[in-house]
Design a protein around this nucleic acid. Structure first.
Length: 274
DNA sequence: CCTCCATCCTGTGGGC
DNA sequence: TGCCCACAGGATGGAG
């Protein structure tokens, strides 16, 4: 569910509740939420009593720098979100992780599908567990470098954009939007994308992600993404490709088509994207 | 290393 | 109204 803009929206709203705060009474309520650890108790043991110095983001991962050598790591998966509440306030279903801070707030992680996780990693674990390319928003490689990484690749460009080792942060919605803006068809093989097209793709990424963040992310339904304030994102109304099968292309009027690539729905304009 | 595919879950919405 | 099915914003590990 959440891609870079939703994760960044979450990070920005969560930061004031945790930065400079000490984590007390940490609870992991669902074993799957701590599954990145051999021993799920590691999350509680390593986080309890720790001060969160800073909340960062790399791709779709939220990274909390602690006052130990460890890093608090959260991935929202498909359905994860945070809620900042007061102790005793009614709890949402599927609350799988709770940490009370020294400010008296309760940071709650809610994740119905349990594809998300919470971890606390050593530097070595961080390096081995998170195999990520550079961040799509703040650290995007130059296009010659991207072109070099695509050369020889036989996979469709859509799948490559989703590969977090190439560039970290794009997901199914924003990858389709980037391809639309660049005029590149999602089925094109990586090796067949010209340097000029790679440059167009690269130039599309920043503005789209920034617009997504400015809109507070994309919520596909009222049950989709919600920020820590409980708000849905407004970017859905600005989508040009994703979810618009049969609707007229905003640029040329041709109906948007839907195909499946690598098991993921992909939407594109058969006229504008070649 | 690369590519493809199944898998982990719960909830929703559409069709009948 | 209920039932069944397809589908959903992701990442990973194994097979070939």
């Amino acid at each position: 569910m959440p891609e870079l803009p939703e994760v960044e929206t979450t990070r920005r709203l969560l930061a004031p509740a945790v930065e400079g705060r000490t984590m007390l009474e940490v609870e992991v309520r669902h074993p799957r939420t701590a599954r990145r650890h051999l021993n799920p108790n590691d999350v509680v043991d390593r986080l309890t009593g720790r001060l969160v110095l800073r909340l960062d983001r790399l791709g779709k991962f939220i990274l909390g720098e602690l006052d130990s050598d460890l890093t608090w790591v959260v991935h929202l998966g498909m359905s994860g979100r945070f809620d900042i509440a007061r102790p005793g306030e009614a709890e949402e279903k599927h609350t799988h992780f709770v940490a009370r801070t020294d400010a008296g707030a309760e940071v709650r992680f809610i994740d119905p599908r349990t594809f998300g996780f919470v971890a606390v990693f050593t530097p070595a674990e961080l390096a081995s567990e998170l195999r990520l390319g550079r961040d799509a928003l703040v650290d995007l490689p130059r296009s010659p470098q991207l072109h070099a990484r695509l050369s020889g690749r036989k996979a469709p460009i859509k799948s490559l954009l989703l590969d977090q080792r190439l560039v970290a942060g794009l997901g199914n919605i924003y990858a389709d939007e980037v391809l639309f803006r660049a005029g590149v068809r999602p089925t094109r093989l990586g090796a067949e994308v010209s340097p000029a097209e790679v440059a167009k793709l690269r130039r599309a990424i920043g503005p789209i992600l920034k617009a997504g963040i400015a809109a507070g992310g994309t919520s596909l339904s009222t049950f989709g993404y919600r920020s820590p304030e409980g708000r849905t994102g407004e970017y859905r109304g600005r989508l040009h490709a994703y979810g618009r099968e049969g609707e007229p292309c905003h640029r040329c009027g041709t109906p948007i088509e839907r195909i499946v690539i690598g098991g993921r729905s992909s939407f594109y304009c058969p006229e504008c994207q070649t």
